[in-house]
Design a protein around this nucleic acid. Sequence first.
DNA 1: TAAAATTAATCAATCGTTTGATTAACTTCC
DNA 2: GGAAGTTAATCAAACGATTGATTAATTTTA
Lengths: 206, 206
Amino acid sequence: MEKIDKKLAILEAANKLFCEMGYEGTSTRQIAKESGANMAMINYYFGSKEGVFIEIMNERIENFSAHLKIINEDKITCLEKLHLVIEGYATRIFNNPSFHKMMHRELSLSQRPQIYDKIKDAMGHNMQMIENIISGGIDDGSFNKVDVRMLIGTIMGTITNVVSAPNKIMNTSNMDLDNPKDKKIIRERTITYLKDLTTVYLTTKK
Amino acid sequence: MEKIDKKLAILEAANKLFCEMGYEGTSTRQIAKESGANMAMINYYFGSKEGVFIEIMNERIENFSAHLKIINEDKITCLEKLHLVIEGYATRIFNNPSFHKMMHRELSLSQRPQIYDKIKDAMGHNMQMIENIISGGIDDGSFNKVDVRMLIGTIMGTITNVVSAPNKIMNTSNMDLDNPKDKKIIRERTITYLKDLTTVYLTTKK
DNA sequence: TAAAATTAATCAATCGTTTGATTAACTTCC
DNA sequence: GGAAGTTAATCAAACGATTGATTAATTTTA
C-alpha cells in the first residue's frame, strides 16, 4: 500500500474544485487528477460523487455551528454578545469565502435535497442563537423593539454581499480576498460597519 | 401549424430551466423539449447554449437598470429617494426571485467571464446611482456620515438573504414566494424594515 | 423558386459509475 | 516462524448514458 490518506486527499481536492467550479462543473476525473487518486477510489470511499459532496458539507457545517455556542454563556451585555457574534461570524466566512459562496449556491439551487436541508438546518440553528441574544436585549430593555429576524438577515446578508463582490464594496478593482492583507482590510471594515449599524439601530432612543 | 415564435419560446423555456436547475444542470435537450422546438434550433438562433444564456442575461439586466434612472430626478428629499429605491429594488427582485438567485449563482461561480462582467457592470451601475443619493444626503447635512457602500451592501444583501431563505426570516416552514399572497407579506415586511433601518441609521442625531 | 425555418439522425466528447485484476499488509494456523 | 488465507486499497479499462453541437434533408414561407 502506498498512502492511507488518499481519502483525505480526495476530500480536499473535491472541496477545492467544488468551491471553484461548482458541483455540476466538477467532474470525477478532475477530482481524481487533483487528488492523485484513481477515479474508482471516489466511489470506493464515498459511494458516489454526491457522497463526497455530502461528506464535505457535513464536516464544515458541524465545525461551523460549534463556534457560536460559547459566546452565549459569557457574562457580558447583550450588545457585547452580539458584537462578538458579528466578529466571529465575519471572521469565519472571510477565512473561507469560496466555501461560503458554494453553500449559498447550493441553497439557491435546491437541487440535492439532502444538502439543502442540511444547510438550512445549520443556518436555522445559528439564527436561533443570535435571535436569543437580540431578544434578550429587547426583553431587558437595553434594545429597541425591532424586527429581529430581519436584522439577523441584514447581518448575514451584508457579509455575504461583501464576500461575493468585495470590489463593489471597496470601490476598487484589485481587491482580492485571497490576499491576506486585502482580506483583513475588508473584514475589519465590514465588522466595524456592522457593529456601528447594530448599535445605532438597537440602542438609539427615539 | 402552430405559428408561435420558436425563438421566443426557446428563450422562455431556457430562462425557466436555468433559474430552476442552473446553467450546467440544464441540457439543450431539456430546453428543446420544454420549448417545443427542435434541438438544432437552439444553435440555429443563438449559436450555442451559452449564447442563449447570454441573451437572457443581457435582456434582463438592461430591463433592470432602466428602472432606477427615473427616481433620481424627482424633487423630493434624499430619504424619500432612498426609500423609493428600496421599494423599487425589492419589488423587482421579489417579482422574479429565481432569476435573482441565478444571477448571484453566476456571480459566485465566475465561470463564464462574459456573463460575470455583465452582471458586475450592471450591479456597479446600480450601486453608483444609490451611492449618489446617499452621498447627496450626507453632503446637504440630512444624513449622518456613514459607510455608504457598506450600507448599499446591507440593502442589497438583506433582500437577497430574504429571497434565498424566506422561511428562515419568517420563522415558518410554509412560506412560498411563488404564492402571491405570501410574496406580498414577505416583501412588505422587508420594505418596512429596510425603511426603518435606513431612517434610523442615517438620520439619528448622536 | 430562392431563402428561411425545421426536422431526424448523427457526431465526437465527456459524464458518473462499475468491473475484474493486482498489490501490499495483516491473520491464522500448523 | 513461515506458508496459506484474508483483507482493504489501488489500478487501468470499459460501461451505458448523456452532453453540446452539427449535418443533410425536408418543409414552410415569401
